[in-house]
Write a protein that binds this DNA or RNA. Structure first.
Length: 286
DNA sequence: GCTGTAACCTGTCGGC
DNA sequence: TGCCGACAGGTTACAG
């Protein structure tokens, strides 16, 4: 899926066409995505005005003027596409080349005739509606860790979360309870840049190295957001623009390539860890 | 707790 | 060209 930088890129693309706008027509073309749509999904959205479009971890949150929030998660292959009201409106796409319309599952139409289309071939994404006031108590968020780019996340948080844990930092950073929003790419990247082995028992990594790791996580995410996220197979911003952070990968998807850490000279390797591909350099990641 | 595995679903790519 | 297996940015459940 899009990880945090990709979701943030999508949020920034959708905000101008959603914030302050009323939804005049909503279409759910099937009864479910990964989970069934909530009871009365379409009716609860039609007529509501979007007050703000926020992001929490990898979730998009559209606060409505009725006290509810539309929650959207893109799963692995979800994307939003904006179709403007006029033909060939600048920066707006009526069709993305090669996109199968059978995978257009949800359409939100605003009072200004912008159509926001949710497209998701694999349907690992999901949507829900919940009380805005109690959002933090919702099961999807209740156990979630801090935002990695917030002051609540730093070395101290990692020291606390890793204490006495024998699992590797890779697994623990992917656990959204530790810190929320990281996925496979950016965890591999941050560990590589911080020169920490994905396999080292987390409880045995010094506090000073965890401080470096936390700062590296923030730096990697910020660079990726600036680059507009990473475009692999099926991610693009809502306006169809492609991210280009994938050109900056240091470890992810670079099996067999030379390690780029200064003075290393090692080779990036790939290993399946907890069912996910881990890319790391055995020479310099300790 | 921890680990590994599988499931959800579709598309793509490489090998033969 | 066609078939088959491996793999993909996530999350969740389950068995041991």
């Amino acid at each position: 899926m899009p990880e945090l930088p990709e979701v943030e890129t999508v949020r920034r693309g959708l905000a101008p066409v959603l914030e302050g706008r009323r939804l005049v027509r909503v279409e759910a073309r099937r009864p479910d995505l990964r989970f069934p749509f909530p009871e009365g999904f379409v009716q609860r959205l039609v007529g509501a005005r979007v007050v703000a479009l926020r992001r929490r971890a990898k979730y998009l949150l559209a606060d409505l003027d009725r006290g509810e929030t539309l929650i959207a998660h893109l799963g692995m292959s979800g994307r939003f596409r904006i179709e403007g009201p006029g033909p060939a409106a600048p920066g707006r796409f009526h069709h993305n080349v090669g996109e199968d319309p059978r995978h257009d599952h949800v359409v939100l139409e605003t009072e200004t005739s912008d159509r926001i289309v949710y497209h998701d071939p694999r349907r690992f994404g999901f949507m829900g509606l919940a009380s805005t006031e109690d959002l933090a108590l919702h099961p999807w968020f209740a156990a979630m860790g801090p935002e990695p780019l917030s002051d609540a996340f730093g070395g101290a948080r990692l020291v606390q979360a890793f204490r006495d844990r024998r699992q590797g930092p890779k697994t623990l950073l992917l656990d959204q309870r530790t810190v929320a929003g990281l996925g496979n790419i950016y965890v591999c990247e941050a560990l590589h840049e911080a020169r920490i082995s994905p396999f080292r028992p987390a409880g045995r990594i010094s506090a000073s190295r965890l401080d470096v790791l936390a700062r590296t996580v923030k730096a990697v995410l910020e660079r990726a957001i600036t680059a507009g996220g990473s475009t692999l197979r099926d991610f693009s911003a809502a306006d169809g623009a492609l991210g280009y952070f994938q050109h900056s990968f240091r470890a992810y998807d670079r099996e067999g390539a030379a390690c780029v850490n200064p003075g290393c000279g090692g080779t990036v390797r790939r290993k399946v860890q907890a069912g996910r591909s881990t890319f790391w350099c055995p020479a310099c990641q300790r």
